[in-house]
Amino acid sequence: MWVYEKKLLYPVEVKECNPKLARYIAEQYGGADGELAAALRYMNQRYTVPDKVIGVLNDIATEEFSHLEMLATMIYKLTKDATPEQLEEAGLGAHYVNHGHALFYENAGGVPFTTTYIQAKGDPIADLYEDIAAEEKARATYQWIINVSDDAWINDSLKFLRERENVHSLRFREAVEVLKDERDRKKIF
């Protein structure tokens, strides 16, 4: 169960209409290394990891949904009231004819989200190493979006989100260390 707070995790200020930037941000919204993939991956792996690290997956999955909400706010506001012509110029013509002004879980190239982006291997180390890799890939994606964005306000929020990837990566690394401490426990007790 979740308790919803009707505010964003971190402020999102959108000062100008910029559908092209919205399209780039979609990579983190519905892309392979994006927040939706992260949230669904951790929320699902949670059931089959050792008890000691369930909480890490649960907490981070929950936070990823709050990141997803920030990205949705950015995409919505960057494209709100954009004309069909402006959307076409930004490479969102195909998006517009299929979805209008609605948001959709797709990457920057318009490829719809698929669960083949994520894995649950049922092996704690295999799963946690995937999670660490996912955080580093998301961090890199934020870097490249910042590099192609001239919007200082959006970049401030993206920088915040990038830093959260650092923190999550460390928490998953710590989860691996916690599991390493289980070595030979049966013999010692």
């Binding site: 971190y10 870097q143 910042i146 970049n155 920088k159 989100l161 830093e163 959260r164 650092n166 923190v167």
Partner: peptide, 13 residues
């Protein structure tokens, strides 16, 4: 984006 200065490396284009 973090409580811990040691975890912050920042990023700028």
């Amino acid at each position: 984006g973090s409580l811990w200065p040691a975890l912050v490396d920042g990023y700028s284009k």
